[in-house]
Design a protein around this nucleic acid. Sequence first.
DNA 1: GGGTGCATGTAATGGGTTACATGATTCT
DNA 2: AGAATCATGTAACCCATTACATGCACCC
Lengths: 192, 192
Amino acid sequence: MDVLLGLLTIEPMSGYDLGLTIRESIGHFWNESYGQIYPNLKKLATEGFVTSKIERQKGKPDRHVYSITRKGRERLTQWLLVPPQPEVPRNELLLKLFFSAQVTPDIPTEYLERMVDSERGLLQRFQQVYEAIASNRQYPGTPYWKMAARFGQFELEAHLRWAEETLVELKKIAGKQESDAVTRKEKRHAGK
Amino acid sequence: MDVLLGLLTIEPMSGYDLGLTIRESIGHFWNESYGQIYPNLKKLATEGFVTSKIERQKGKPDRHVYSITRKGRERLTQWLLVPPQPEVPRNELLLKLFFSAQVTPDIPTEYLERMVDSERGLLQRFQQVYEAIASNRQYPGTPYWKMAARFGQFELEAHLRWAEETLVELKKIAGKQESDAVTRKEKRHAGK
DNA sequence: GGGTGCATGTAATGGGTTACATGATTCT
DNA sequence: AGAATCATGTAACCCATTACATGCACCC
């Protein structure tokens, strides 16, 4: 809801544009699906926080371009003055890792490797996003955008360091289980 | 749902106990409210994944103690074999910081200081939790519990380093706005 | 006397995702 | 020929939190 208002302070946009912008510029800390964006824009419009004008296009559906109103800016400010609530964490990877004594260590190992792959890619894309923001000096928002981007960098780097350490631990566990299996086998051969 | 199954592999527990355990041992990466725990336990029971027995108490309501069944363990394993989905991030602090050009820099500064306070406390509690797990050597889950705890440490430390850096940036912005205000004042005094 | 902890549970409400529908254009 | 992109929107559904209800015991 208020994200939409915030993004519309940058420039007037359609719901579709808002979706794209969210995905590719604040996607690492916030998300909103189209099933949410369109109804919310309508609601914001009926309450006078945004206005819309229709741009006709050939071959494509009309674009509904929304602009924030003075009233909308006031609402945004009010929202910014409310201290952010501590979020409810939900990390499925960690949850599954926590219970991984119930399966063999190669299962969580695979999950961590996947995570490393995807987060390494993200980190690279981040560096680029950061440069792009930094060169975009004119806008008053840029210092804050940089801060948010740096947060992503710090967090991703921390995750990667953790994953490195943890993969070593997992390898140790796997090795130990193998040697245990051998020991058991030897015991059996020795006649119990 | 599956968290409950996972925790019941450690020991049989009541819904109330599960709530407490979640809060104080996996609360940093997963949460579940009582409004979810009780109905889910019932559902798990009707589907044969857990059994319950009632412990009568004097002065207090009866405890419904749940135990995981063989079928429940199978379900847990199946769940652990499903690769974790990448989560949808939702960080309200970052979102507000991102739009903070709309307010004065002391607003996000206050939010960051709050965050530093609470996360510093968490980090300390974490170190203790980690020690507690480490001394609890006998249980097969302990290596995995340590890994999950270390994740929290890494992330919190990253947040704190980021907050430190960001608070400096915010101070710079605040300083610049003040000196700008002075300059404007001087200009006015100099006769426009 | 009033708050907190123990212990269970339901109902209302809200938030959000997914799937579906439509339809022209452009790329493979 | 079929997939993807542009562009909007709705409806079904799932999940989760919050608030409410109950009631005894203990502590300040």
